[in-house]
Amino acid sequence: MGRFLLRRLAFFVFTLIFTSLLVFVLTRVLPGDVARIILGREAGEDQVAALRVELGLDQPLVIQYLDWVGDFARGDWGKTFVSPRQDIREIVLQRAEKSGWLALVTLVMAVPISITLGVIAGLREGKFLDSLISLLSLSVVSLPEFVTGLFLINIVARNSDFFPASSSGIGPGTTFMEALPKLWLPAITATLVLIAYIARLTRAGVIEELKRDYVRTAVLKGLPYRVVVIKHVLRNALIPTITVIANSTGWLISGLVVIEFVYGYRGLGSLLIAAIENRNLPQIQAIVMVTVSVILVANFLADMLYSILNPRITLS
């Protein structure tokens, strides 16, 4: 087990380095004159020159990369360029918290529902209920988040008082409980996508396990169907679901970018879009790095849980 986790940890570190390089290349090397891009075409030559120095663009690339990574690790993520110049780290973390709320509500709704649906569909493979669940989840998975989002806003929210249509108005000072009413609709939008994703994979897992020889052994022990399913099948079918859920964080995050944009929710996703709009490269870098870290931590936690629950890991 230790060996397995160690390997995962090595992968974790490797991926962080890899993505930081990727981000660096995308935002620092590819664009050519970074300072010019950030400041726009109208900016004066002296302003551009000053920013170059501030960003260290006069240094060789290797030094630039190391400086950037070092600063980032130390918590110095730079400042925005339009006045009033703010600390990027502060903004990003504050927005990340808001996105976290949304993700939390989504997961709390999505995980139990989707696993239940997936298990039911898997146990009833080929039957009516399975076809229904499968068709619905396939359709929902096919709808882009902005389509479902706009549908919910325009049909559901406008016809009920319970769900506010817009999530604007959540700021740095808002508490979770204050924000909660405004979280429902975006969270439901994200949930729909996640449910379909997790349920489909859970279904596949259950079907695969049901075909295994040990299920036959269990049935021929004379165990009641209920016991066969709960004790023998689900145990093996649900262990990989942990990984599925962890893998869905990436899915969730891209979904959130779109959903925040649709609802005007001030989370990390809408910050990213704004940063791209404003050509705020350091902020883009910070957002991507935070996102990757979250995904990797989620995966690592899932691996740990997996290795605890799955006795087969111990030897491999």
Binding site: R212, D213, Y214, R216, T217, A218, R235, N236, P311
Partner: peptide, 16 residues
Amino acid sequence: VSIVPQHPMSALNPSI
């Protein structure tokens, strides 16, 4: 009535 199956490895539940 009991059965001794062909592949003991796959006939045993891997996680119990």
